[in-house]
């Protein structure tokens, strides 16, 4: 009975300790900046267009083939009297969030730092009623960055974490 008494005292000691519950929908734990949810595209506020040039690097590197990328000639390019130095720009972009396995490879292979993993709670709370709604298009991918709702973190592979 000594051991049983000891285990009962152990549970009693936890009775006196503070609860550890984080009351989730009311309280959102602050996420670390490195947190990875789903990939999204970044917005170049200086020129007011996406960073993405539609180079297909991420599409080719994706292990689960969840991305579809189409590029077009940039209507805002300098050669046609615009302000941008990007000759090509993203036309259409779909990511199937239901397939994405959040491996971060698309971020690593991007030459223009145009894609980042969502590190906000919006990226985690993605429940929808229809599986089709998880295929997001270019508009949805850009919304958060365009509205400056995200402090994006694009890791430099093999180097820093700041």
């Amino acid at each position: 009975m000594k051991g049983i008494a000891r285990s009962m005292l152990t549970t009693l000691s936890t009775f006196a300790r503070k609860p550890v519950t984080r009351n989730y929908p009311d309280y959102h734990r602050p996420l670390p900046r490195t947190d990875r949810a789903f990939p999204l595209l970044l917005w170049d506020h200086e020129i007011d267009e996406p960073f993405c040039t539609g180079c297909h690097a991420c599409e080719r590197a994706c292990p689960v083939e969840c991305m579809t990328v189409l590029m077009k000639d940039n209507p805002n390019h300098k050669s046609v009297g615009g302000t941008s130095s990007r000759r090509k720009i993203i036309d259409k972009f779909w990511v199937d969030y239901a397939r994405c396995m959040r491996c971060n490879i698309c971020v690593e292979v991007c030459n223009f730092d145009a894609i980042a993993m969502n590190n906000t709670w919006t990226g985690h709370e993605m429940s929808v009623y229809d599986r089709k709604d998880l295929v997001v298009d270019l508009e949805q991918l850009l919304t958060q960055s365009r509205a400056k709702e995200i402090d994006e973190w694009v890791p430099i592979i093999g180097q820093t974490n700041d």
């Binding site: 549970t11 009693l12 936890t14 009775f15 300790r17 503070k18 609860p19 550890v20 519950t21 009351n23």
Partner: peptide, 11 residues
């Protein structure tokens, strides 16, 4: 039980 488990229980 929630208190013993350091939880809050129904709230």
């Amino acid at each position: 039980i929630a208190r013993f488990n350091r939880r809050l229980g129904p709230t």
